[in-house]
């Protein structure tokens, strides 16, 4: 199955956007530990902007960047949102209230707790009535999201926006799920090559027979890739900065892998 990358959005601690990330990925020096502040997206109406959580802000930021990069109107795009943990901060706040004496949950917090909250806010902000699917596959959410988005593009013949994001998990859940840094990325994927195509992804799902999963050659970035399920996309992003064909093996459950052959199109990836 083949899809084409038309736009990319990226946000991580110390990386403001895809152009900045491209430069970082080409050199891969050890990561610092910068602050990570997200701002409420301007595209949301005032009420939704007030209620937006960090999960919503992160997803909308990368989606907006990818759509602008692809020069696509977000209103027309079907979307897939993939996250392993969803909104850990909102869930934690609800669980703390329920453990107390007066289980009064805030209505806003409750509707923000659904896994598809970022997709809901995105559709409201962009006025997009296109289909949107929010998925999860634990540590393998990146591969599962890619396969779902690619299969939608291939089935419908229409472009699909894919967002992959996972946020830092708060205590006490972090002890059980040690996601320490937030990471978000988005792709606009099309079923056919267009004048704006940056690269082709050829995807093949296959049983894993001892192959090594593609990693990163620098320890602090490799640690990020391991700890945050959305950051499993880093080797794919790095392949997008290369000028020749690269093969990336993503883990897909314990038993399989998703092999992605990345072919750059045009002279350089914008």
């Amino acid at each position: 199955m083949k899809v084409f990358v038309e736009g990319i959005g990226l946000r991580a601690p110390g990386i403001a956007n895809w152009p900045a990330g491209k430069a970082v990925l080409q050199t891969l020096h050890a990561r610092g530990v910068p602050d990570f502040q997200l701002t409420a997206p301007a595209l949301l109406p005032p009420a939704e902007r007030r209620r937006a959580t960090d999960a919503v802000k992160l997803a909308i930021e990368v989606c907006s960047e990818a759509c602008a990069h692809a020069e696509r109107d977000p209103q027309t795009l079907a979307s897939v949102f993939a996250s392993s943990g969803g909104d850990g901060a909102t869930i934690t706040a609800i669980l703390e209230v329920l453990a107390g004496d007066a289980p009064e949950i805030s209505p806003t917090r409750f509707h923000n707790s659904v896994h598809n909250a970022p997709a809901g806010y995105w559709s409201i902000g962009t006025q997009s009535m296109a289909a949107s699917t929010s998925v999860c596959a634990y540590d393998w959410s990146c591969g599962a999201g890619l396969l779902e988005a690619a299969s939608q593009a291939a089935s419908t013949g229409q472009p699909v926006l894919l967002a992959l994001y996972d946020l830092r998990y708060p205590a006490p859940l972090q002890a059980a799920r040690p996601i320490k840094d937030s990471f978000g990325i988005a792709f606009v994927l099309t079923p056919h090559e267009t004048p704006r195509s940056l690269a082709a992804f050829a995807l093949a799902l296959r049983p894993r027979r001892g192959e090594t999963i593609t990693g990163l050659p620098e320890a602090s970035w490799e640690a990020l890739r391991h700890s945050n399920p959305a950051a499993r996309a880093l080797p794919l992003l790095r392949a997008l900065t290369a000028s020749r064909v690269q093969t990336v093996d993503l883990d897909y459950m314990a038993h399989s892998l998703l092999r992605i052959t990345v072919t750059p199109l045009g002279t350089t990836v914008r």
């Binding site: 659904v114 598809n116 699917t133 929010s134 998925v135 999860c136 599962a144 396969l147 459950m253």
Partner: peptide, 11 residues
């Protein structure tokens, strides 16, 4: 089973 798998969580 070892085929494709995912969870859709859209409320």
């Amino acid at each position: 089973l070892t085929g494709p798998a995912l969870v859709v969580s859209a409320a």
